[in-house]
Design a binder for these strands. Sequence first.
DNA 1: CGCACACCTGAGAGCGCTACCACCACAAGC
DNA 2: GCTTGTGGTGGTAGCGCTCTCAGGTGTGCG
Lengths: 329, 329
Amino acid sequence: MSTPTTRPATLDDVARAAGVSRSTASRVIAGTGFASPAARDRVAAAADRLGYVPNQAARALVRGAGVRLVVAVSGADATVLDDPYVDRVVGAAAQVCAPHGVGVALEWLSLRAPAGLRRLGEDRSVCGVVLVNTTEPVLAAVPTGLRGRVASIGIGSAAVPSFDVDNAAGAGAVLRHLYDSGRRRIAMVTGPRWLSCAGRSVTAYRALMRAADLPVRLVAGDFSAARGGRAALEAVTRWPDTDAIFAASDATALGVISALRGRGIGVPGDVAVAGFDDIPYAAVSTPALTTATHPVRRIATAAATAVLDGRRVPPVTAFPSTLVARESA
Amino acid sequence: MSTPTTRPATLDDVARAAGVSRSTASRVIAGTGFASPAARDRVAAAADRLGYVPNQAARALVRGAGVRLVVAVSGADATVLDDPYVDRVVGAAAQVCAPHGVGVALEWLSLRAPAGLRRLGEDRSVCGVVLVNTTEPVLAAVPTGLRGRVASIGIGSAAVPSFDVDNAAGAGAVLRHLYDSGRRRIAMVTGPRWLSCAGRSVTAYRALMRAADLPVRLVAGDFSAARGGRAALEAVTRWPDTDAIFAASDATALGVISALRGRGIGVPGDVAVAGFDDIPYAAVSTPALTTATHPVRRIATAAATAVLDGRRVPPVTAFPSTLVARESA
DNA sequence: CGCACACCTGAGAGCGCTACCACCACAAGC
DNA sequence: GCTTGTGGTGGTAGCGCTCTCAGGTGTGCG
């Protein structure tokens, strides 16, 4: 028993079966140009009967379109690719791309980057690039060949539309909540220093603290739980009267809570803790985490859609972020 | 200022620049067949100088290879695609595929499935399929055209190699830990009933309970935190003397803890809770979650690699799972 | 009746690449 | 001398599709 494996039908097969030319079949399948209702029906029926599926590779080749959308993540080393945040971006992008016959690839972009980006620009099978964790040097290195086919999640530039949550609004909502519940010695565990978009919530924190004539207490984090825990201990050691900690991410906040607990500090009794992201586990942590929403999926979907469309789309740098008040603050 | 946008170099450009024929250039770039060292050098230099990147679409077309790996997730509806677990699989797959010039697409497979799978088999631009959350009916519907290009994360079949964590070992390790710490009324919150691979840990639970002459107390969950919480309350209501709950996933366990706390039940004081997965947040939950590891990334990497290789690879249905004893049990 | 102007169709070129085959030069063997 | 390699090379046929362009076949109008 060999494998006759009736090879998948091609457009020619469909055309032959429908009794029309390849051109007509193509027009019907692609939905471009004219075709009589009769021809349309016959082709559709034949395609259905033969289980015809267009070959995206061939289509892309002739249209010069590209079959891959690359999610390019900047970072010190390739381990950034294992991040749950990156996974979510890739998942959302893959979902957006699937109906277009486009696949998603995940690549690491060295922080200095230029070479990697240039290669992506030269690669005709790449239909677009979504930048994650971008920095200014990376943005500056975006080749002109990528114009209109690139979007950034985080900071952007004149040539690169960016999509991001309204960091200032989210941070503001959380900090106001902290203030309203009587907290006055509010420390912040930041995101990684080299990441500009993470700086936006820091800026908002600074501004609000100054406006309220409150002390600015910054400790450096990197969005991770482990680092967040260490940063929290650093904060309460340096400023023992700290009564609230605002973490730049929920993972950080969870690490903060865990570390404070280890030190015998009650949350929210002694120190209130709030995060930023509203990850699924925030609702079921102990205590349930107060945070601000960060619609990662929607942002990634918008970015991928923008890249796929190819048209110049307006960036959206302020996806709304709303306070989710729970127990931890 | 128009857009001269010197179009990306093609193999012809490289060949011309190197003073060889397209065939020779192709041989050097693809690394197949003969080529003199001199020619090799000249072509490599020219390719480098021109920033040449092979067009995967063209390559795939002529080789009949496919440019997309599809992660197909079964479930009641398309919302399963938003799951963090799926995101991790897609992220890992995208990382594996990137060097091969292959992109990852994410699709939902209705639980009855056949049509969707047949289409994937007919699609020449699909190089392979990774099944997630597979059920027997879906497995049975895998078309012969997909033979050797499909792998499953979870259950498998004669035609579909499967990759999964050693559910029995993980569950066993957790349950033994519970037993060793004196727990005897151990309830289990299961995964979704329709998912066979989730049944494996249930089977292990049943066997161990029977062997130790302990009562079997099962409540249905679906891996989610919310449902886990409800299931936990159901369990302690039906069996008030329950002193431990084994949840089929960490998300479930977190939901369980949260719900018990809401009911004033102490963890681990009154009821010990253990999960399965060892997600990043397990280490920083309160109390820190006792669980068994589930190397999702490694499993997904193996599955994607198997599909990409195309060769008949031995399935690995028992990725080791080890106990991570923390505070919750 | 003839001409314009729809609408529709098929032939054919070619996207960038690989793979097959024919070819060349040269060395070794009957 | 002729065959038989052997390592290197170029010509060229497509992979499956889209798209332009040159034709058709009708209808409406002067």
